[in-house]
């Protein structure tokens, strides 16, 4: 309802200035604009839909409280992603081992998901579930970089901005994350690897 009050082309920079000048409507538009992306990113870390929404709400509150510290040198969404990734990793460390005991509750998510899900082939869904499980098992820094690159489709420069690391570090961390993913896939689901790559992946695992 808030988004209807303003042109969708209003740049983030203008909205931010209006929020800093005291406009609530402008902040509501920022929330409307980014809520699905934030929730999607959080869902890569958190299985429970309600918990995810609570986290997303915390993220936007933090954004509101800290908006005056945002430097316009970077894009607003990379700053927002940084706050989101930090909230997600904090949540993971707070949850600790509890998250491992969480029952997979994909049904909860699917109720609020894209309409195409019921028609998606079962094989693709299984593959996605297996992949998600493997990515969740990776160390946090590898998991985050894979999520940002493969799931959120961020460029190297955007990843560097979100994680506040050098471009070279993005490349090497991404490379290692993919190696780890490949090793885990080889161990747990070798049937999903491309033909003839099991030996190669095993060599990678030993390195």
């Amino acid at each position: 309802m808030f988004a209807l009050k303003r042109s969708p082309e209003t740049p983030d920079r203008d909205l931010i200035q209006e929020v800093l000048d005291g406009s609530e409507v402008a902040f509501a538009e920022l929330v409307d604009r980014y809520k699905d992306r934030v929730l999607r990113l959080l869902s890569r870390y958190c299985r429970d839909a309600i918990e995810c929404e609570d986290l997303a709400q915390d993220v936007f509150l933090k954004v509101f409280r800290k908006l005056h510290t945002f430097q316009h040198g970077s894009q607003f969404f990379t700053w927002l992603y940084r706050i989101t990734v930090n909230a997600a990793t904090d949540h993971l460390s707070r949850a600790g081992s509890r998250r491992l005991k969480l029952v997979e509750d994909t049904g909860v998510f699917e109720r609020g998901c894209d309409a195409e899900s019921p028609t998606a082939p079962l094989e693709a869904q299984e593959l996605a579930a297996v992949t998600r499980k493997i990515v969740e098992g990776l160390p946090e820094k590898f998991r985050t970089i894979l999520v940002l690159r493969e799931f959120e489709d961020l460029s190297y420069t955007e990843i560097a901005e979100v994680l506040q690391i050098q471009l070279g570090t993005v490349e090497s961390r991404l490379f290692r994350a993919r190696q780890r993913f490949k090793d885990a896939l080889t161990r747990e689901h070798p049937e999903l690897l491309p033909n003839g790559d099991v030996a190669g992946a095993t060599r990678g695992a030993k390195r």
Binding site: K35, D36, L39, R40, S43, A49, C52, E53, A56, F109, E110, G112, C113, D114, E116, S117, A120, A124, Q125, L127, A128, A129, V130, T131, R132, I134, V135, L146, E150, F151, D153, F181, L185, L192, P194
Partner: peptide
């Protein structure tokens, strides 16, 4: 391919 499948999987909406 598995990563692309996971990326294409349905995600929650607010």
């Amino acid at each position: 391919a598995p990563l692309l499948a996971a990326a294409a999987a349905p995600t929650p909406r607010a």
